[in-house]
């Protein structure tokens, strides 16, 4: 059993949670994730570790309410227990001094980009971060990202804050300005990652994406998370979660993420009814 120590709504549908998990906190490195299962009847879902404190023995996760499990998790609070937490999983991000690094985070993906930006900054890189969201109210972690970046470039789709437009345009402008970029980390919704990877390919700028396919065991046993990278089937859980964005088959990833959309709707409806029933 894993105790929830803090819960904060960063905005309406994005939640930050601090969980007590000392052993995972001790081992965890940037880029790794956990799998959690709320209760005995729960499903196993992967969530990136945004931050950890090895002394306090805690992990921070940030998630968006997208279905039944995340809705149920968002209802839980301080003092509640999560039945199972497994981790740290996946390969850590390769952290070294590349020179100039651009970290792009879109939506809840900013939560995944943050620890990577922080670790890269610590390793001596010049970190330029581009963070984007639909509108100002749902742009998360701006302060945190600012602290670990040499430059922070926010953007909103509706122009309510920062650049009026997509993160991809901000990146394009940055490239056009003549900034010499050694590597790009792009983390966010699949369409965003696909656009960014497509954009940087002609420039030959290495672009790493962090994928979040459907997983079950997340230890390499089931293959639910298979993704196609450079024409080869890889497992998101043990071979990833980070891959070369220029090689990823994003269409397949999008299609596979929708595999259970019918059942997910059904589970969500049932959950809503039960909640109202109470």
């Amino acid at each position: 059993m894993f105790k929830i120590l803090e819960k904060t709504f960063l905005q309406e549908i994005i939640v930050s949670m601090v969980i007590e998990a000392p052993e995972i906190a001790r081992k965890r490195k940037a880029g790794q994730f956990i799998v959690l299962m709320i209760d005995e009847k729960g499903e196993r879902i992967p969530l990136t570790i945004v931050d950890s404190d090895s002394e306090k023995g805690t992990l921070t996760i940030i998630f968006q309410i997208v279905g039944k499990t995340t809705a149920q998790l968002a209802q839980m609070g301080k003092g509640d227990f999560i039945r199972n937490v497994l981790g740290p999983l996946g390969h850590p991000t390769e952290i070294k001094n590349f020179g100039t690094v651009v970290c792009v985070g879109g939506g809840v993906g900013i939560g995944v980009a943050y620890p990577i930006a922080a670790a890269l900054k610590k390793a001596g890189n010049k970190v330029i971060s581009i963070i984007g969201a639909r509108t100002k109210d749902i742009l998360i972690l701006e302060e945190e990202m600012k602290k670990v970046s040499d430059r922070l470039l926010p953007a909103t789709d509706d122009g309510s804050y920062g650049y009026h437009g997509f993160v991809s345009t901000v990146l394009q402008n940055l490239i056009d300005s003549g900034e010499k970029i050694d590597i790009i980390y792009a983390i966010g919704p699949v369409p965003m990652m696909r656009v960014l990877a497509g954009m940087t390919k002609p420039y030959g700028i290495k672009t790493v994406v962090s994928l979040n396919p459907i997983m079950v065991d997340a230890t390499g046993m089931c293959g639910a998370c298979r993704v196609s990278v450079g024409g080869k089937t890889r497992f998101g859980c043990v071979d990833g979660p980070e891959f070369d964005g220029h090689e990823v088959d994003f269409n397949l990833l999008m299609s596979r993420l929708k595999m259970y959309s019918g059942q997910e709707t059904k589970a969500m409806e049932k959950y809503r009814c039960e909640c109202h029933g109470k």
Partner: peptide
């Protein structure tokens, strides 16, 4: 890698360990 194609490990794990045969009482589809 089309949807609907499973490894036996995944198919059986969903059904046995996660009790997907009892969906939606259990959450795993």
């Amino acid at each position: 890698n089309l949807n609907g194609i499973y490894s036996a490990n995944e198919y059986l794990t969903r059904s046995n360990l996660m009790k997907a045969y009892l969906f939606p009482e259990y959450d795993t589809p």
